[in-house]
Design a protein around this nucleic acid. Structure first.
Lengths: 252, 252
DNA sequence: TTTAGTAATAAAAACGATATTATTATTGTT
DNA sequence: AACAATAATAATATCGTTTTTATTACTAAA
């Protein structure tokens, strides 16, 4: 009998992923399904691209990845094709797959686009957000603040947790915006900008300005002061570009 | 010797596509490459979804499509996966592929998103556009006007040409906006909105308001009157929703 | 020494077949 | 008759291999 996928992963690869593993949760309910090999590979490769394990512009060598993941060509190709939707992978006929390159000009473009969509969503949220939205925002801000504190105690361990809280906070700001299309675009942009952020910060303690900026955005939003909240958010997003430009980490 | 893809298509399927066929152009230059089977299948399925040949929400039955296109499973799956990037196809683990459903609420969301991105790009174009941008816009408007006239003479034949000119005109309006990210999002939105447009118009002569609206947008843009151009464009995009809602063609 | 052409190699794209999962039909039980 | 459990069927996901294309290495002519 031939070996199949289900039996082969596990110990070898599974724990490397940044995604939740969806293993049983105390037998409470079985709503979660086992991911397909494609879904699993997609998730792992995605986080490796974001973390820079597969560097920008580098070739995604099919043979190598195939044996590394222990999967077949078509499965791998489909996982990589899905990453095209996130703009993390590009392809050209008969030339295979590459990690989407990074550049200063792309970062600037990306940042402008993010500012446009995030501020617009925030303004809408302030206008439309109900109590539940507000409650969630309070929760997310509080969690982020706590993650921030822990980061100062032990940067190495707490960094990934902070990243998650940061993402949740920014999602919470926009959450009352009703557009599913724009939410999807924001998600794509956020994911891509995460690649750039990792480039600069590299898992250290987050500079103190960041917390101040978050606090300013949070307070203005709670006070329903749209102009102030929007400009604070825009400044916050824009500042990250300057950090990276200052460090001269990128071509272009 | 086994039959392969290259030999099998051609007469049977190739002419059905809406994409340029990239066959030799008089031997002048050979910059154009033959598309891969995946690229070809992707293009054909995409246009069939937009045209409604594969209806919204319907299942994309792999076996049927495989034999219809004469390609293998993995090739087909990859083509369909690429369509996920365009949000024209959705998938859920172990449940196969479906055409993305359509609904009135989605149309409204889509329309709001389009208005945001298209008007923002137009405003930027008016601010930044150079002579070349202006020239191209004049050309595109003229071609659209000509297509419009021909449409009144022979709707059946001229409709597809009009669609192309319409798309080009709208692209030309936004063309001086520098953001590649937002351009990509606009393209995705335009494509999806095309599905809805086909639903209403159905290849007849385009209502006379449409030409008036185009002319108003064009004139205001050429006069660099941002406010007027933007509001005319917004009204133009929004009107299509009302047409469809009036016809009650959709669920939700 | 470069350049052009050709052979050898490596890699990607595509195929056909198998294993796995979901769905439908069937049967037996209360 | 309705329900649950199971068998049969259909469809999807995955595999291993072959064909096609691109890239590199090599050779010979200018």
């Amino acid at each position: 009998m031939r070996q199949r996928w289900s039996g082969r992963f596990g110990a070898k690869e599974r724990w490397l992923t940044a995604e939740p593993l969806r293993t049983g949760l105390g037998g409470a309910r079985f709503t979660e399904k086992k991911p397909t090999a494609i879904e699993f590979t997609y998730a792992v490769v995605r986080s490796r691209i974001i973390e820079g394990v597969y560097p920008p512009g580098s070739k995604l060598h099919l043979e190598t990845l195939k044996s590394s993941f222990g999967i077949s060509g078509s499965t791998l190709r489909e996982a990589l094709t899905r990453l095209m939707a996130d703009r993390l992978v590009i392809t050209e006929g008969q030339k295979g797959f590459r990690v989407t390159p990074m550049s200063l000009s792309d970062l600037e473009d990306l940042t402008d686009a993010r500012i446009k969509l995030e501020t617009s969503a925030l303004a809408e949220s302030i206008k439309l957000g109900d109590d539940a939205w507000e409650d969630n925002l309070v929760t997310c801000f509080h969690r982020l603040a706590r993650a921030q504190e822990r980061l100062e105690v032990d940067p190495a361990i707490a960094f990934d947790a902070w990243e998650v809280r940061n993402k949740e906070f920014h999602e919470a700001l926009a959450a009352a915006s009703p557009s599913a299309w724009l939410a999807r675009f924001r998600q794509v942009l956020f994911q891509s900008s995460e690649r750039y952020r990792r480039l600069s910060g590299t898992r250290g303690p987050v500079p103190f300005e960041v917390h101040n900026e978050h606090e300013e955005i949070f307070k203005a939003t709670m006070a329903r002061d749209t102009d102030k909240a929007v400009s604070a958010l825009a400044a916050h997003i824009r500042r990250s570009v300057n950090v990276i430009r200052a460090k001269a980490l990128l071509p272009d």
